[in-house]
Amino acid sequence: MTYSLRCKVIVGGKASGRVLATKQPINFLSSVDPLTGMITDENHELCGNSVKERVLVFPYAVGSSVGAYSIFALRSNRVSPVGIICTSKTDITTASGCAIANIPLLELCTDQVIPEIENFNEALVDGISGILQIKKV
């Protein structure tokens, strides 16, 4: 099954990878290890997963303003997501972090039917045309 979802493009570029999706916001400074990409916050449902080479789908970032550097550090340490999708309201931390890390960043348009992205495995992020393609394989 494949879905194509329209998105607003925040940072352009193309990427593809396995989906890592959550409905919980993320504090990039306190919840993700910048050296390994592992989510380490025991109170987060993705704890124990790595963001490395994934298409990270989450509502928005919370907490520290330094989270923008955390996204950049993930990229510098080669453990960053390949693409990021905000499902709710793209925040300033994620937008600025992706802008300097050159990570394609899209925000889902809310005027369409959006399936449970957690149930899909593969994602194709097209930050040129603004389409997120998700596939269940």
């Binding site: 303003s65 330094v66 923008a68 550090a73 510098s76």
Partner: peptide
């Protein structure tokens, strides 16, 4: 500005 403490921005931040 935030992003001043080495404990938070790490080596990637220093280089940037």
């Amino acid at each position: 500005l935030s992003g001043v403490n080495y404990n938070t921005i790490g080596d990637a931040g220093v280089k940037f």
